[in-house]
Design a protein around this nucleic acid. Structure first.
Length: 841
RNA sequence: GGGCGUUUAGCUCAGUUGGCUAGAGCACUGCCCUUACAAGGCAGGGGUCGGCGGUUCGAGUCCGUCAACGCCCACCA
């Protein structure tokens, strides 16, 4: 076998060389003919393609790839698909900004519409179908950018196993699962107050909320009692006085006992309002008595529901105050000042009105307080009553909650403490999972509603499509038994206009990637999956949602293990965010340091541990990769033939292999525990001592000939084969490059090294270890004397117990050559080494 | 207010069931062109392991407590 070893090997171009090779040779192709126990399946997170690429996008994926490569080498058939999460709001928002368009569902489809070459300003209004087409065009482009990144990073994905959360399979899967939920009573629709984003004009779910500290002001406002007295409330939202339905105080609050059961009238508007006791009212908050509006916050919703209060809505879905004067206002004149305003404008106006009327006590008191936002939104959420679809998630059902908590305990969490986040989330749920969104680019709720003779929909008896019709868009498909001309007509039907939230579809990634509906045999071979790798921030959404869906649909956990990666921080250990302008993107780093270096950095981050982008670590990774090239060149440079392991006879050679065998065990154990970082550390530490000590010790012998030289050649080849395989999960390009110098096929399809390979060549690790220690002293002596490492020794004396002396004696020839000594004196006694330099002539 | 995590050399981090004379890399200092590697190698200096208190023959490692930082959750009138 001829070897083709470059004179001056380097890392440049390895990504571009090996990625196409792997693809064209089907190296990572999944063979679905294997049985379930032969398969290792991965529920890869589908990245949001419309999102920005940053180091967080690389971090977790590389860690998962290391697992995938390890399992593949360990003999598993690895199911490693890749999905793209392209449906949903992020894509819509990106399309709006990218092209300068707005979706207007009332417009007709324009067949000849050409997307603007650059963002149009002001935005063009286009039909829903045109808008969706643009979403597809742009996500296709975004997906290519992601695929290019993943390939450059060397992810060992089977690129024939891809899906997108908006493709037909995903839509069909999502709709079928929803219809199953509906049939089993796990999905239901309801008219109810929901959290509402006024910019996107859609409902949002509890899982998508975040609190932000915002400035506000307490306004102390007088309500009037029947006996012309005043009762003060404090509110940050005086503009909602017109939607006030009651006052509330704690039942034990002495101050308000006399008011319970009586009524007060609101300032400005003169509306008569009851005063109720309720446990949730906190005596020490504000004045201890609060106004209940429909709806100012989620507590209002609780009071409204529990006290059975009327609904007086003033805020419209677009966030403005209604332009129609509400009919419940007694003094309606003032309302004209508020009509059409946004809440913050109305708040200022209302404060003026209250000041004028003398109902505002003192100046508003400025405070900072947490305000609920949609995580992708820019303005505070409002609460709007509307009809929405929900999937039960245990938020309103103790039995289901218990079942889901048990699932969380069954799941193997890596690291273990991440399971706590799941438990807390499930325990803290306050309602079912709101899945409907009043948006466009998503999987449609696959339902129609019959219209009665008055043209009103019967929401309780939706018209359900048959399985073979899926996927459907009810706004363009006609339900069977009806004619399209009956759409919107009395006695006819109407489509559910909503789409499902992205998570309602991505919670089914195991079913989508696993071909649940189209190929049951395939599904059985990959599901439940082995691992779900993901970030910690989506435990409450993706992980929990997936658990709910699999629990309901299949009665099992969707995976055996969840590996949760850490959070990525910028080089200054700050959270990366666009607004901070500290987002680090991967491509420039890959160009500067190489993909292997970035992979090395990612694999150095411990499982679940927050990790800063660290160029220093990348440099180390790059240096390691270069070292592998050079050491390999050395190890393979002596002979073109494979040396039989029987030729490995020298004690130090066998000693080196003995030590390597235990390193292999340690790395394997770490990988089995999903600790890729430890596996890398073990391999790296072992490799550096191999190059620093063993290679130096055997160098002279290896350059010679005869049996002693052949033993060294054999040991070098043997060890190199092991090291390349140990590093293959982390540094796939450089290991493949070296493998190609002397072996056929891909190193990534080779067997993971096992201790049994070492049978017959294992020696006592002490020989190499002891000799290395002696060599270190020799080096120190030379270093302190400031002479070359090639300087000759006049004498070399080793003291220690007999086992140490025997160990060194076994490697004496190599030690003499590496140390530059003529002889070693062995002395039984205290352990020490004495090296004396020869006088320089 | 509750929970989880982190706190080890100037920096970034290891340290697996308690045995450590506490490690690595970067940075710093010195030396070495040695035929795998100068985009390198060898060697060196540098730490009261966040504070306090306990358990133990022995604690970076276990327990309690406090503090700082980060994240998550919470009804935000």
């Amino acid at each position: 076998m001829g070897r083709n070893i470059p004179q001056k090997p380097n890392l440049d171009g390895l990504e571009a060389k090996w990625d196409p090779y792997w693809e064209s040779n089907d190296v990572f192709r999944f063979d679905a003919n294997k049985t379930r126990d032969e398969i290792f399946s991965i529920d890869t997170p589908p990245p949001t393609v419309s999102g920005s690429l940053h180091m967080g996008s690389v971090f977790g994926y590389v860690q998962t790839d290391a697992h995938a490569r390890y399992r593949r080498m360990s003999g598993k058939e690895v199911f490693y698909p890749m999905g793209w999460d392209d449906n949903g709001l992020p894509t819509e928002r990106r399309v709006q900004n990218y092209y300068g368009v707005r979706c207007d569902p009332s417009l007709p489809y324009d067949e000849g519409f050409e997307p603007p070459a650059e963002a149009h300003d002001p935005p063009i209004s286009i039909s829903r179908r045109n808008f969706i087409e643009l979403c597809h065009i742009l996500t296709d482009e975004d997906e290519q950018v992601f695929e290019h990144l993943w390939r450059t990073m060397g992810l060992s994905v089977d690129w024939k196993q891809t899906y997108a959360t908006i493709d037909d399979t995903a839509q069909k899967t999502s709709q079928k699962a929803f219809l199953n939920n509906l049939a089993r009573g796990e999905a239901y629709s309801q008219e109810a107050p929901v959290l509402w984003d006024v910019d996107f004009q859609t409902a949002v779910a509890q899982a998508e909320l975040e609190d932000r500290e915002k400035g506000g002001a307490y306004h102390k406002v007088a309500f009037h009692t029947a006996d012309r007295g005043k009762v003060y409330i404090e509110t940050t939202r005086p503009e909602l006085i017109c939607s006030c339905v009651a006052l509330v105080a704690h039942p034990d609050d002495e101050r308000y006992q006399s008011l319970f059961g009586s009524t007060v009238t609101s300032p400005i508007f003169g509306v008569e309002l009851p005063v109720h006791p309720h446990e949730l009212a906190e005596p020490d908050k504000g004045t201890g008595i609060a106004m209940i509006c429909t709806f100012g916050d989620t507590t209002d919703v609780t009071w409204w529901r529990e006290l059975d209060l009327p609904t007086r809505t003033v805020i419209q879905p677009d966030g403005r105050f209604t332009s129609e004067t509400p009919d419940w206002l007694v003094n309606a004149d003032a309302y004209g000042e508020l009509a059409g305003l946004y809440p913050n404008q109305a708040r200022r106006k209302m404060a003026e009105l209250l000041a004028e009327s003398g109902d505002l006590e003192g100046e508003p008191r400025q405070i900072m307080h947490p305000v609920k936002f949609y995580e992708k939104g820019d303005r505070p959420l409002e609460i709007v009553s509307s009809r929405q679809w929900f999937i039960r998630n245990g938020g309103r059902d103790d039995d289901l909650q218990k079942e889901l908590l048990v699932r969380g305990e069954e799941l193997h969490w890596v690291p273990e403490f991440m399971g706590v986040r799941y438990r807390h989330w499930v325990e803290g749920l306050t309602g079912d999972w709101l899945i409907s969104r009043q948006r466009f680019f998503g999987v449609a709720i696959p339902l129609w509603y019959p219209l009665n003779e008055a043209g009103e929909p019967d929401y309780d008896n939706p018209i359900v499509p048959s399985d073979d019709q899926l996927p459907i868009d009810p706004t363009s498909h006609t339900p069977s038994g009806y004619d399209e001309s009956q759409r919107g007509q009395p006695g006819g039907f109407m489509a559910d206009p909503d789409v499902m939230d992205t998570w309602a579809t991505s919670s089914l990634t195991p079913q989508i990637a696993g071909r649940w509906l189209d190929d049951p045999s395939f599904f059985e071979r990959v599901f439940p999956m082995d691992i779900r790798p993901q970030g910690p921030e989506i435990i409450r959404t993706w992980l929990f949602g997936s658990t709910v869906r699999a629990h309901m649909e299949h009665g099992v956990l969707p995976w055996h293990t969840a590996t949760i990666n850490g959070w990525i921080l910028d080089p200054d250990r700050k959270k990366m965010s666009k607004s901070r302008g500290n987002v680090v993107t991967p491509m420039p780093l890959i160009e500067e340091y190489g993909a292997e270096a970035v992979r090395y950095w990612a694999c150095n981050g411990r499982p679940g541990v927050d990790t800063a982008v660290d160029f220093g670590v990348m440099k180390i990774g790059r240096r390691l990769a270069i070292k592998i090239l050079n050491a390999s060149r050395f190890a393979l440079g002596f002979t073109d033939s494979d040396v039989d392991i029987a030729a490995i006879t020298e004690p130090i050679d066998r000693s080196m292999l003995g030590g390597l065998a235990s390193d292999v065990s340690a790395a394997t154990k770490a990988f089995e525990e999903y600790d890729y970082a430890r596996a890398l550390e073990v391999a790296e530490k072992s490799f550096w001592s191999w190059t620093d000590d063993y290679l130096e010790l055997v160098k002279a012998r290896a350059y010679g000939d005869g049996a002693a030289a052949e033993s060294a050649h054999g040991a070098l080849q043997f060890a190199l084969s092991v090291y390349l395989r140990l590093f293959a999960p982390f540094l796939p390009f450089v290991t493949e490059e070296v493998w190609s110098w002397w072996r056929e096929g891909s190193v990534h399809l080779e067997t993971w090294p096992t201790p049994s390979e070492f049978a017959g060549v294992e020696g006592d690790a002490a020989v190499l270890n002891s000799t290395s220690q002696v060599l270190t002293v020799v080096r120190r002596t030379k270093s302190e004397a400031k002479v070359s490492m090639r300087a000759e020794l006049e004498s070399l004396s080793v003291s220690g117990d007999s086992s140490l002396l025997d160990a060194v004696r076994a490697a004496e020839g190599d030690l003499l050559a590496a140390a530059g000594a003529n002889a070693v004196a062995y002395v039984e006694g205290e352990q020490s080494v004495e090296a004396v330099l020869a006088p320089t002539s």
